[in-house]
Design a protein around this nucleic acid. Sequence first.
DNA 1: CGGTATCCCGGCCGATACTG
DNA 2: CAGTATCGGCCGGGATACCG
Lengths: 133, 133
Amino acid sequence: MDSTQERPSAHDLPFNVFAKACPSRGTLEHVTGRWGSLTLGALYEGSLRFNELRRRVDGVSEKMLSQTLHALERDGLVHREAQPTNPPRVDYELTPLGRQVAERLLDLIHLVEGRMNDVLTARERYDATRGAL
Amino acid sequence: MDSTQERPSAHDLPFNVFAKACPSRGTLEHVTGRWGSLTLGALYEGSLRFNELRRRVDGVSEKMLSQTLHALERDGLVHREAQPTNPPRVDYELTPLGRQVAERLLDLIHLVEGRMNDVLTARERYDATRGAL
DNA sequence: CGGTATCCCGGCCGATACTG
DNA sequence: CAGTATCGGCCGGGATACCG
């Protein structure tokens, strides 16, 4: 019943994101990263082209969007479909796994958006007491 | 009006994380950030002291943990309870809102951990085709 | 349109030292 | 134990220019 150092809550999966060296931590960061989460969220509605995505994810630069899409494609969350037409047309869409991830991400996003007033109120209270120092 | 049919993309909430200037984007980043997500995830099991948390979130520095906790406390997701004993004892625990957030985060974390083999496979395929350039 | 290459700055973050 | 202060490197990420 005792296997060296097992914590009560710990999951027995081979991958544990709380461990520094675990590769799942890297993927979690791609997914939850500043642009990763918004990109996946935007693609949940359906496939989008590069510049559509860029407009949808307000504030992202070409460089970061490109970089983000490569990371997500590499992790198998986004599928890139290029058509060799002229002018070129490239569509990005979620893979089945990407959809599952995006679903959870959107749950989180909607929760944060929906409770933002509470957050703002909490900030005011915090700043009123601690910010006065 | 057409309030019956609604595009899934457009939420009518006052806060939209896809908009550059929206404060919800900042909170989402606190929550999904590298240390924010792990901190909230760790606290889901119950309250923890500073150094317990530090050990649990493998790799976090004192500075970043402190900074992360302040941001989460300010946003009303974590409650800090200090006891004026000697040696000092400080417990951190999730607020009700923090619990809801952590719940979603853990859903995401468990999904990523559980599908990590697929991710790793996808990476190999990607690197084999594109990495050869 | 759909990107890549380059430059470069701010701030994220770790290491270290110090305080109550 | 529970932090804060300071320094410095590294790199995330924006701006710009350029290519197929």
